[in-house]
Simulated scan of single mutants.
Amino acid sequence: MSEKNFFQAEHISAGYGKKTVLHDISFSLKANTLTALVGANGSGKTTLMKCIANQLNHGGKCLLQGDSLEELSVKELARKVSYIPQRSGIKISLPVLDVVLMGFNPVLKLMQRPSKEQEERAKEALVKIGLGGYENMDYLTLSEGQKQLVFLARTMIEDSSLLLLDEPDSALDLQNRHQIMKQLKEMTREGERAGLLCLHDPNLALRFCDQLILMKDGRCIEKLYPQADSLAKMETALKEIYGDITLFPCLDKKGTCHLTVLWEG
């Protein structure tokens, strides 16, 4: 795992109209790591994601491998950054395979169709996330959880360096939540890549992520590293967001230790 900063957000501030939502946020990501933005509703997580994806005007700058994301063209940005919002925005009937194949759009020329090899890669991605055989189904007929899995498959075929996912687990059942997190962690370990995602469940963040960025009232109040920080430090920091909680280690059936948050309220 590289020690050099792969991505840097420097003094990000943003808002809507006259209301400031983000206040001078700075952080960095290492290559081959997965980082979670955690915080209560309204803490600014989604707004920060939009700033990094350059979908919202903001102060400060975002650097990916030294390149300013704010200065890239739309197509250049799409090649380097994969952004999956909470809702896909797709409102017309499309086969599931076509939705996944959109992941190749940044590398295709105008009106160029994906190749047979690219179609095979898209089908393999659907198999990996448990939707093999869904290629010809209408995307709009899927459940919200299945739609999220389709977009994970789309992300898997992209060669982008920075993965941004806003609550990828929100509509998934328990088994699929863990499956999607495993897939994302594996993806960030491949090549020169880093992942950043918004999560509401701190247990998922503690189990699968290398770094947690804690947000409150539009500010970054703490950065945690589950593999290195003490239990006491993490519990104190998480209480700033979640209130009266207890953080404790527990063992699964394989004897692997996981950190678990227990709400006391």
Rank of each mutant, 00 (worst) to 15 (best):
S2C: 05
S2L: 02
E3S: 08
E3P: 02
E3L: 15
K4F: 00
F7E: 08
Q8N: 04
Q8M: 13
A9M: 09
E10I: 12
L29R: 12
L29Q: 05
A31T: 08
L34S: 03
A36Q: 03
V38N: 07
G39L: 04
A40P: 12
S43M: 11
G44T: 06
M49H: 00
C51P: 02
A53N: 04
A53L: 06
K61W: 05
K61S: 15
K61C: 11
C62N: 14
L64M: 04
Q65S: 08
G66E: 01
L69G: 06
E71R: 15
V74M: 13
K75R: 14
L77Y: 09
K80D: 01
S82H: 10
Y83D: 04
R87H: 14
R87E: 14
S88P: 10
S93D: 11
S93C: 07
L94H: 06
P95C: 10
L97H: 07
L101S: 02
L101F: 09
M102R: 07
M102W: 06
L108A: 03
M111P: 09
Q112H: 08
P114S: 09
E120I: 15
L126N: 04
I129T: 02
L131W: 06
G132A: 14
N136Q: 15
M137E: 03
M137A: 12
Y139K: 11
L140Q: 12
L142I: 12
S143A: 03
K147C: 11
V150F: 02
V150L: 01
L152A: 08
R154Y: 08
R154W: 04
S160W: 09
S161P: 03
L163P: 04
D166S: 09
E167Q: 08
D169N: 10
S170Q: 01
A171D: 08
L172P: 09
L172I: 07
Q175D: 05
N176Q: 06
N176M: 08
R177H: 00
Q179A: 14
Q179G: 07
M181H: 05
Q183A: 07
T188M: 05
E190S: 03
E192S: 07
G195W: 10
C198F: 03
N203M: 05
N203G: 04
A205D: 06
C209D: 11
I213T: 06
M215W: 10
D217Q: 15
R219M: 11
C220I: 13
C220W: 01
C220D: 06
I221R: 12
L224C: 02
A228T: 08
A232M: 10
K233M: 00
M234N: 03
T236K: 12
L238M: 15
G243K: 13
D244K: 15
I245G: 01
F248W: 05
P249E: 08
P249F: 05
C250F: 14
L251H: 12
K253S: 13
C257E: 15
H258D: 13
L259A: 09
L259W: 15
L262T: 11
L262C: 10
E264W: 09
G265M: 02
